[in-house]
């Protein structure tokens, strides 16, 4: 399987990359989704700009009370980051659940998020974390929150010529517990359904809950009805079960040869319950 002919540029600076993108080139990062699509000729970009060539775009650092992750940080960079393990363990846990080791060595957080595969793992965690995305064009940059960023299957708030330059996630205190639970498609490793939970307890009551769901519908989303149902509750098994039962409410569930819509909805409830229980058990 050979891709159609294309031109390739390894840019020397972000400005050079943005200039080329503004004139119609397509960005490539790890290539873990784009290259298979090019080999199948589902994608045939005429000009690729290799963002991995920008060595200063793969940082992971803390600044201003938040965590900043450069677009080309690989899944392995995230999975093995001591800073993230300590301050945002939901992201390291999610990165470790992506694909396989070879994919995690090459694939990048920016590439995965910008590609917005409806079965990708990161979007669930980034919804639960209320992540912010720095989108940069040739002339300006803007910051978009996760709820507005993921628009539809393979569709994000990115405009032509813009790149996702950075992902920003918050640092939670010790009263917060998180977990990512998924049912993986055995061949590809993609999530048939994945649920990221982020809960905070105060004096025995749940004071804050965020649930990000991937794989179930066309885009990763926040299960707002479940979140509301949890707040103020004391996290008994019955409380968790009744909140998890609402996770797919109002969602048009995907159906394919791996899982019917009804089965996916069932999996979402089961995994929401597991993610919530695990997250609560991790509160220090």
């Amino acid at each position: 399987m050979i891709a159609q002919k294309f031109e390739y540029t390894a840019p020397k600076s972000l400005d050079e990359a943005l200039h080329l993108l503004a004139s119609g080139a397509k960005p490539i990062a790890g290539g873990m989704s784009l290259i298979p699509m090019m080999k199948l000729r589902l994608a045939a970009p005429e000009h690729l700009v290799d963002l991995r060539a920008l060595k200063d775009l793969s940082y992971i650092r803390e600044a201003g009370g938040q965590l900043h992750i450069g677009a080309t940080a690989s899944h392995y960079d995230v999975e093995s980051s001591a800073l993230l393990r300590q301050k945002c363990p939901l992201l390291t846990e999610t990165a470790a659940a992506i694909g396989d080791v070879q994919v995690r060595n090459m694939g990048t957080i920016g590439g995965s998020v910008a590609h917005a595969d409806p079965a990708a793992d990161y979007p669930a965690a980034l919804q639960a974390l209320e992540a912010k995305f720095v989108l940069q064009g040739a002339k300006s940059e803007r910051v978009v929150g996760a709820t507005d960023f993921f628009v539809d299957a393979f569709t994000t708030a990115l405009e032509p010529g813009e790149i996702l330059r950075e992902v920003i996630v918050p640092i939670d205190d010790a009263r917060t517990g998180t977990s990512y639970q998924k049912m993986a498609q055995p061949a590809s490793g993609f999530a048939i359904v994945g649920v990221a939970a982020r809960v905070r307890q105060n004096a025995g009551k749940i004071s804050f809950a965020r649930l990000g769901i991937t794989g179930l519908s066309n885009r990763a989303y926040r299960a707002s009805a479940s979140e509301k149902a949890l707040e103020g509750k004391s996290s008994t098994p019955a409380d968790i079960q009744s909140a998890a039962a609402l996770v797919a409410q109002g969602i048009d569930a995907n159906s394919d040869l791996h899982a019917s819509a009804d089965y996916r909805r069932h999996l979402a409830v089961v995994h929401a319950s597991r993610a919530l229980k695990t997250a609560l058990s991790r509160i220090a």
Binding site: Y8, A10, I28, G31, M32, I35, P36, D50, R52, Y76, D100, V101, Q102, V103, N105, M106, A187, S188
Partner: peptide, 24 residues
Amino acid sequence: SLCGACTVELNGKAIKSCTMFAVQ
């Protein structure tokens, strides 16, 4: 990029050489 038979080490990291362009 599913079977891993093409795995090589690139700058110390295992990668699938069928899912990378040589120019990269």
